[in-house]
């Protein structure tokens, strides 16, 4: 119940943040998120900057250049507001995900939880397959493979990877059936 309440409070905050436009309030809110993160503040701040930094910087620079060219001035209030809102909400999202147990939060929707679990498991498997493939390519090439070699390698291995992933999926299906995940008829 506590985890579900956390998620609801987080969603209410995210929705409500759209109605706050004062950069000082947004800066204070981002500061509160980092304080709540405690020892993880540095890691969460770094991840938030990495996640949105490139996108926000691209739009910010484009808007600043556009304003300078059209009006000879830069809308600093917009820049502060947008950057702080993007950073604060992303940091809050990463903090909530780190603190909330997804299994408990999604417990009322077992079908959805099952799908999320399967997707998560497949992501792990896919990550492992790709890592195996990357190491295989590295062991077969003298120097660091250039983009063309890596692309050819990926293209030739794509179908094989897909086949292996589907084979793993069938194994998972058998394991889930053996553990009673489905009540098969007949």
């Amino acid at each position: 119940m506590r985890h579900r309440l956390f998620v609801l409070a987080y969603l209410a905050t995210a929705i409500g943040s759209g109605f706050v436009h004062d950069p000082w309030v947004l800066a204070a809110a981002a500061g509160v998120v980092l304080v709540l993160a405690g020892r993880e503040a540095g890691r969460i701040a770094r991840r938030a900057v990495l996640a949105v930094g490139l996108f926000v910087a691209t739009v910010t620079l484009a808007y600043a250049a556009f304003g300078w060219w059209r009006e000879g001035a830069v809308d600093t209030a917009w820049i502060l507001r947008t950057n702080l809102r993007a950073f604060g909400l992303t940091a809050l999202t990463l903090l909530v995900v780190a603190r909330v147990d997804a299994r408990r939060a999604f417990a009322p929707w077992p079908g959805l939880l099952g799908l999320i679990t399967v997707i998560g498991a497949q992501l792990r498997l896919l990550q492992r397959e790709l890592e195996d493939y990357r190491l295989g390519l590295r062991s077969r090439t003298h120097r660091r493979a250039n983009a063309a070699t890596a692309a050819r390698h990926a293209a030739s291995g794509g179908a094989h990877l897909l086949g292996r992933a589907l084979h793993d999926a069938d194994e998972i299906a058998l394991a889930m059936r053996a553990r009673g995940a489905w009540h098969d008829r007949g």
Binding site: T58, V59, L61, L115, L126
Partner: peptide, 29 residues
């Protein structure tokens, strides 16, 4: 979704996840 389809959906969804993670920002927003 049944016992056969669910894990296969998981495979293609994981693939979509990976494909969508490789994204490039454009100035248009």
């Amino acid at each position: 979704l049944d016992a056969v389809a669910l894990p296969r959906v998981g495979v293609l969804t994981a693939l979509a996840f990976v494909l969508m993670m490789i994204s490039i920002p454009i100035p248009g927003g």
